[in-house]
């Protein structure tokens, strides 16, 4: 009987070691250790043994069972490991294939530019004011020191709705409305649509976007105007940006200036973007004209301020190298989805 058990173990060992699938292992477990398995078969013959032999054989049988079980588990783990490795090997995919697209919308480039500008000025303590696009002539002109026969009114081809209502030609009327409503300190920007009667072409549009800025307080200087706009230029166009202020004329500011920034395309060496001058004209600015302050109910003896205005469309075109303004209004998704 001892012999049989030893033989059984040897057979089992042989078979188990040569198994190569989990199914085979399971089959062998049943074959040797199952209720009707070979070990049980052998142990059925225990009854014919002498009583003193029984414990000895019993122990041997247990040892054989344990060994076979151990062997089964060990081999099973080994096979499972191999199978896992095999599966992993078979699961290699082409990681260069495209990902599954998740749809998300693209913000219009002008909104993106405006968002960036807004963030800079919010950080400088500015809030955002809004005003009507269809505006009283008074706010668009008279209150901005541009009376009826003023030559500057000629420069702006204005759309009129009635004799005293028009489509605002600039965002500057919001300056006046803000000053009428609020007491200094005032620090606002005001982006929005403006209108001039130009036919649309690569650089003109009857509808375009401006952003106005206004600061009014005691002791505001022209140095402040320069300081604030310089910070804006550096934050928006890059820390290396240089600026240049040139005298200019606006009816509602005195002194008035235009600000050029060093060309961000060539760094000032001269290129097509800057017309080979190294500089790009970005905005108009100036110290708020005392007449404008006075008309809005602010005492120019006590307060001073500065204002500035810039074209969002133009800056968007410059920033992204867009050469035709019409692209901004055409809304070809192949264009918008580039931003």
């Amino acid at each position: 009987m001892e012999e049989l058990l030893r033989k059984l173990y040897e057979d089992a060992q042989k078979e188990i070691l040569s198994a190569d699938s989990l199914q085979q292992i399971e089959n062998l477990r049943v074959k040797y250790l199952g209720k009707k398995g070979e070990l049980t078969q052998i142990l059925r013959g225990m009854g014919s043994l002498k009583p003193e032999e029984r414990p000895v054989i019993g122990q041997i049988a247990n040892e054989v069972r344990e060994k076979i079980e151990g062997l089964l588990t060990e081999t099973k783990n080994k096979i499972a490991q191999l199978e896992k490795e095999k599966r992993i090997k078979s699961e290699y995919i082409d990681i260069t294939m495209p990902g599954k697209p998740y749809e998300y919308g693209h913000k219009h480039p002008m909104t993106q530019v405006l968002d960036e500008i807004k963030k800079i000025f919010l950080g400088l303590g500015f809030s955002i004011a809004e005003g009507p696009e269809i505006e009283f002539t008074y706010y668009n002109f008279e209150a901005l020191n541009t009376p009826e026969d003023h030559p500057a009114r000629d420069l702006q081809d204005t759309f009129y709705v009635t004799s005293d209502i028009l489509l605002r030609t600039q965002t500057s009327p919001v300056q006046v409305r803000t000053m009428e409503k609020n007491k200094p300190p005032i620090r606002v920007i005001s982006p929005g649509r403006v209108y001039r009667s130009d036919e649309i072409d690569a650089t003109h549009s009857p509808v375009f976007h401006q952003m106005e800025g206004l600061v009014v307080d005691e002791g505001i200087t022209m140095g402040d105007l320069k300081g604030v706009l310089n910070i804006f230029a550096k934050k928006f166009f890059g820390e290396d940006t240089q600026t240049k202020f040139r005298p200019h004329y606006f009816p509602f500011t005195e002194p008035s200036a235009e600000m050029d920034v060093s060309c961000f395309a060539c760094g000032g060496k001269g290129c097509r973007v800057c017309g080979y001058t190294g500089w790009i004209e970005i905005l108009g600015a100036g110290m708020v004209h005392p007449n404008v302050l006075r008309m809005s109910g602010i005492d120019p003896e006590k307060y001073s301020g500065f204002a500035f205005g810039l074209g969002i469309d133009r800056i968007t075109m410059l920033k992204y190298g867009i050469e035709d303004l019409r692209l901004l209004f055409e809304n070809d998704l192949r264009f918008i989805q580039q931003f």
């Binding site: 000025f121 919010l122 950080g123 400088l124 303590g125 500015f126 809030s127 955002i128 300190p185 005032i186 620090r187 600061v215 307080d217 005691e218 002791g219 505001i220 200087t221 022209m222 140095g223 402040d224 320069k226 300081g227 604030v228 310089n230 910070i231 240049k244 202020f245 040139r246 005298p247 005195e254 002194p255 008035s256 200036a257 110290m287």
Partner: peptide, 29 residues
């Protein structure tokens, strides 16, 4: 003032950051 500023040179005016002004809150409504 403008006559003086433009011949002195706008770019020779020193930049400043509203040091005389009151602090204001920059926030969206």
């Amino acid at each position: 003032a403008e006559e003086i500023a433009r011949l002195f040179g706008y770019n020779n005016i020193e930049d400043s950051l509203m040091k005389n002004a009151q602090t204001t809150l920059g926030a969206l409504t």
